[in-house]
Design a protein around this nucleic acid. Sequence first.
DNA 1: GAGAAATCAGTAATCTTTACTAATTTTATT
DNA 2: AATAAAATTAGTAAAGATTACTGATTTCTC
Lengths: 126, 126
Amino acid sequence: MNYSRQREAIISVLKNTTSHPSAAWIYDRVRIQIPNISLGTVYRNLAALEKEGMIVKVPVGDACEHFDGDTTPHSHFYCKSCEAISDIPFDPSDALKTAEANHGFEVHSVTYTFTGICKECLKDKN
Amino acid sequence: MNYSRQREAIISVLKNTTSHPSAAWIYDRVRIQIPNISLGTVYRNLAALEKEGMIVKVPVGDACEHFDGDTTPHSHFYCKSCEAISDIPFDPSDALKTAEANHGFEVHSVTYTFTGICKECLKDKN
DNA sequence: GAGAAATCAGTAATCTTTACTAATTTTATT
DNA sequence: AATAAAATTAGTAAAGATTACTGATTTCTC
């Protein structure tokens, strides 16, 4: 993989947020530095980085894909109300070993997603 | 929610497969019974059934959404090679309790997705 | 059976993502 | 530093998934 300024900027955006952003959000951020970057470039690089294991996809079941620059073992919480994705320090790696041992799969990653209503949104309801 | 023949057919398709199908797949199946059903009807009913908790979304990070008629606690394995989604009898409900207790979220569901290469695809490689 | 509410079929529109192409940038080599 | 091959990009077009809309049909309640 050759160097590119665009890819560096995308990595930098992803490594400096905990918001698990979509491609569109990343595009908006990167455009501050590189105003004429193409949305296709963002998508292409996100796919390449995911393939290399440098970033992680976080599918939560809303309209679009989300990405995470933090590849250490942890879990996610998706709020159905405000649609935010937050981290939960829950290491799923034990389950990974169990799955490989019991089912014969070659497991590359485990995504553990909790869905519900977050603390802030619960507050707003009362 | 009023009765509709279309919704019954959709539920029936979902309850009689373990393949975690997409809306398009469900549409094709239901059309055998109801040839002029509309794709929009399938989407609308899937959303309504999911809201009611009668079915479950299974986001795996491919192009489209998948659905599961089995709402009992279990987990999923997504094969990156053949793109099949299979069940794993891994009950995530303990983790749910942990998340609620430690983080104050109101957790509605937990999605535990393993991603990798399934047994059959591993066989094909050799 | 009649009226109100819910649902539907069919179509159009929207949104996300991918594909394509000619131009630019990077890398390796001299 | 100049050069050629390979990788990457911007910009645009196309594809695919999902939602929105409208007038007609079906379901429910009385």
